[in-house]
């Protein structure tokens, strides 16, 4: 596991966007070889999306041959509701870039048969050749996507009932009325994310410091589902200083000493794009 500690939230956005840029460009996707990207929503990745849009506008990257799969979506929330993840993805990312709408996949929380919707999603990921890079964020309780504490670490895409903590945390997005927060969501499973070739998790802010500690200094535990990625051969966690507050000094110093090596991961080769 790699842990990249950036000074600030802004630099987390910068670092993660540069990494995506480099991974996609190194992959050199074309019509026969699509880059398959897993995407999160929420406040943490917003900065990364903004940077990627800027790279697109500068001509440094194209999403023409990129396929995307989003982690999750609320159940029974109108698709154009400003809190739906369809709305988020369209307005914060997709409408600004050259991605083909055909290549975008977001779970439909309004589908009549939710179980079929989930199974179809898994099938589509397989048909796309699996996910090359899955980007995720976590909640303060260490959930990745909507894999709430107690979720099976072998879980696949399914309907999930949200934990009380999540409902309370999300109420602020629904006029501070917890009754308006959707009670269920569709989400990829921990196992679905584990199957990706690489996982990049963004963790920022002191309120997520305890979750980061659980993710890397304690054992694998289904009450902190993000800890499952200790078992993944290619996991990359990008965090800011605030998120490290619960870590041992030794841990922080160790990963910080790897800064030069980590920097090589985002170095741009000087080749003409």
């Amino acid at each position: 596991m790699r842990l990249v500690i950036c000074d600030t939230v802004d630099y987390v956005a910068d670092w993660s966007a540069k990494y995506v840029l480099k991974r996609i460009n190194d992959f050199n996707p074309n019509e026969n070889k699509y880059f398959v990207l897993g995407l999160p929503t929420g406040g943490t990745p917003l900065g990364m999306y903004k940077k990627l849009i800027t790279y697109y506008q500068q001509g440094k990257i194209s999403f023409k041959y990129v396929k995307t799969f989003n982690m999750d979506e609320y159940v029974d929330l109108p698709r154009d509701h400003p809190e739906s993840y369809h709305y988020y993805m369209y307005n914060n990312f997709f409408k600004h870039i050259d991605i083909n709408p055909e290549n975008v996949h977001i779970l439909d929380g309004n589908a009549t048969d939710l179980e079929k919707e989930c199974n179809d999603f898994e099938r589509k990921i397989n048909e796309a050749g699996g996910i090359e890079l899955f980007i995720g964020g976590i909640g303060p309780d260490g959930h990745i996507a909507f894999n709430e504490p107690g979720s099976s670490l072998a879980s696949r895409t399914r309907v999930k009932t949200l934990a009380q903590d999540t409902l309370e945390a999300n109420a602020r997005f629904f006029g501070n009325d917890i009754n308006k927060v959707p009670k269920q969501a569709l989400t990829v499973g921990v196992g679905t994310v584990m199957d990706s070739k690489e996982v990049m998790i963004l963790i920022t802010g002191s309120h997520k410091a305890f979750a980061l500690y659980k993710a890397i200094e304690e054992g694998v535990n289904h009450m902190w589902t993000v800890s499952a990625f200790q078992q993944h051969p290619r996991t990359l966690i990008i965090c800011d200083e605030d998120a490290t507050l619960e870590l041992r000094v030794k841990t922080v110093k160790y990963f910080k000493s790897l800064w030069d090596i980590h920097s090589k991961l985002i170095e741009q080769e000087s080749r003409a794009k």
């Binding site: 698709r79 154009d80 369209y90 307005n91 409408k95 709408p101 975008v104």
Partner: peptide, 23 residues
């Protein structure tokens, strides 16, 4: 914001993107 128009009316491009999947 961009303005999207079809058949004489202003339309929601998000619906075009997700439902019709066209440019």
């Amino acid at each position: 914001e961009d303005l999207w128009v079809r058949d004489g009316r202003i339309i929601n491009p998000e619906r075009i993107f997700y439902d019709e999947k066209i440019k």
